[in-house]
């Protein structure tokens, strides 16, 4: 009798453990999703800003066709990307193109005095910042979630209910991570 009672209690405890583990996996996965949506909002915002930017600078920068085309191409690539890994790659290419654009802008003092352009540049800078701060948050959440999936015993539950690992949102190369240096000394 007592052995049977102990057996029942153990079953219940195991069940409770399973439920709590399952719930924390779900919670972590939702946090990852939430963090991703925060990045996504900012990426969309950046895509929306770029046509305006091109429109504003076109008149000033007729000699910089290539730079501007690079941005447009990188943008359309980024908009086509669907998975996290693809997006990370395309978006860091876009960041690189915008970085090179910012260097070129230094040669156009007229443009730098244009209020419209300055407002756009502020929006772009801010959006880039928001992307990088949101990315940090997203990667933290993914790390916690992936750890949980890999570790025993939650890995068993993750396997049973088909929880899969999420990709990190990483900047591709070291070169693109570097912010271009701008010299105002001249």
């Amino acid at each position: 009798m007592s052995a049977f009672a102990i057996f029942i209690i153990l079953i219940i405890l195991a069940g409770l453990y399973l439920v709590s583990n399952y719930n924390s996996l779900v919670r972590l996965r939702n946090q990852v999703k939430n963090a991703w949506s925060q990045i996504d909002v900012q990426l969309k915002r950046r895509h929306d800003l770029i046509p305006n930017l091109i429109e504003t600078v076109k008149g000033y920068m007729s000699h910089e066709r290539e730079t501007l085309e690079n941005i447009t191409n990188a943008r359309s690539q980024a908009m086509k990307a669907s998975t996290v890994a693809e997006k990370a790659k395309a978006e860091s290419a876009l960041s690189g193109a915008l970085g090179r654009f910012n260097v070129v802008v230094e040669n156009y003092p007229d443009l730098k005095a244009n209020q419209n352009f300055l407002a756009l540049q502020e929006e772009l800078t801010s959006t880039e910042n928001k992307i990088s701060f949101a990315r940090q948050n997203y990667n933290d959440q993914v790390l916690r979630y992936n750890n949980k999936i890999e570790m025993f015993p939650s890995n068993i539950i993750a396997g049973m209910f088909n929880f899969t690992k999420e990709d990190f949102f990483e900047i591709e190369t070291k070169e693109e991570r570097e912010v271009p240096k701008v010299d105002f000394g001249k």
Binding site: E122, E123, T125, S126, N129, K130, F133, N137
Partner: peptide
């Protein structure tokens, strides 16, 4: 003041 507004928004994201 768009810049001030943006900076506060950025730091809200960073601080969570």
């Amino acid at each position: 003041h768009p810049r001030l507004f943006n900076v506060v928004e950025e730091m809200t994201i960073a601080s969570g």
